[in-house]
Design a protein around this nucleic acid. Sequence first.
DNA 1: CGCGATTTGTGCACGGCTTCACAAGCGCCT
DNA 2: AGGCGCTTGTGAAGCCGTGCACAAATCGCG
Lengths: 240, 240
Amino acid sequence: MSQQRTGTTDGPDFPDLPEATVARLPEYLRALHHLSEDGHDTVSSEGLAAAAGVNSAKLRKDLSHLGRTGTRGVGYDVTLLIDQIEQVLGLTHRRAVALVGVGNLGHALAGYAGFGTRGFRIAALFDADLGRVGEQINGLTVRHIDELPETVLQEQIAIAVIATPAHAAQHVADRLVAAGVTSVLNFAPCVLNVPEGVDVRKVDLAIELQILSFHEHRKSALTALPAVQKPQHNGAEVAS
Amino acid sequence: MSQQRTGTTDGPDFPDLPEATVARLPEYLRALHHLSEDGHDTVSSEGLAAAAGVNSAKLRKDLSHLGRTGTRGVGYDVTLLIDQIEQVLGLTHRRAVALVGVGNLGHALAGYAGFGTRGFRIAALFDADLGRVGEQINGLTVRHIDELPETVLQEQIAIAVIATPAHAAQHVADRLVAAGVTSVLNFAPCVLNVPEGVDVRKVDLAIELQILSFHEHRKSALTALPAVQKPQHNGAEVAS
DNA sequence: CGCGATTTGTGCACGGCTTCACAAGCGCCT
DNA sequence: AGGCGCTTGTGAAGCCGTGCACAAATCGCG
């Protein structure tokens, strides 16, 4: 069931995709699914790049890392490319995901349809609050966090989502790792300390806004300035 | 005016912070607030770097762009540094944010306390569904999206969050831009097309999981391979 | 059967980001 | 006052990512 690298067959042994490429592949995949639904069976690098919002040369270089995927003079086979990207991303089977923290955000995530349609299955919900344990959300029963080890084992869970308050996140992460989880998506606004071999990605809504705030601040300072400079993008033409 | 160090009153002169630095400043800010609550009044670059999960040299270089902030042999004044970062990020006043799309995720975002505590104020909620207009969420009334222009003007809204389904996101973005919004945080899984001068940041939950899935896939392929293993790893923190 | 139109795949150069290593500066202790 | 230890700030080197520009490859058509 795991991917073997015997290489004799058509086994795609990935030779260390650049991290930046990996981060873009899901975007290509989404764009390809969209194109496929629209009836396209081939697409040029220019077209796909536009749909994914990137430079076409970048896209070609990204895809070149997957092996020979396109046909010169024609473009890329949409279905074939979807298969290849899904294979590389390990999306050939639905991955079971655990969600810890069924509060405000956790509730929304548990009901988010995008997970189900893009390769994942929320296999279990957990919370530490006994008042929430037993609650039914989207066909799943919220379990107490003490049941984590057996559930992770039983459902073959390798990826977990933390949607708890920040003060509980590290503790939850420790228990997840102890239970065998090796990838964590953290929505709590704090830094997680995990042992080597465990991947953590963080999504912090306030940080995203603060980055936007910086650019807002900068833009409003520029409008008060004479247009001597010529930065890459400027000019909010909106009247105040 | 932007580069002068004449030291007038409160001249907000930024010397073009690197984008990577801007993306980390919010993390430093959060860590600093945490340290401040714990009673620390100074912190070393090593300590702050650990709290923010980055390299200490990187942190020092980042902070050096803000001007002289630390004291050699001592460290950084926590309160002073908080003020400086907030100034650079434009967080000296609460920024009004509009939230469009009060569905599953939008509901959670509207109730997310992290916005309020970190420099933002959700000033208005919008939805296109008449069945949702008028609903009360967290003390705010959901308005119809047609009221966008006047509300944006009235509440001085420059930043908006899109939490609609993907098929509606581009239309909403167009209307937001037309109303005067110049920064957008997009939760819809699609590429937004906006005119120059408008900033867009995207948060796609499924993409984050797919990136984790790739690393899972890679890890399981490595464990099945007894020969070579790569100790090099990025993104994981060293345990205490 | 060959030629031209088209598109991929990639060598190369450039810029930005990261990291090391160390000099410069600051406070404290004697 | 002077030295010593500690910490910041930064020069420099290296790495990664990006984008241009073009050769190689493929298809269609006359």
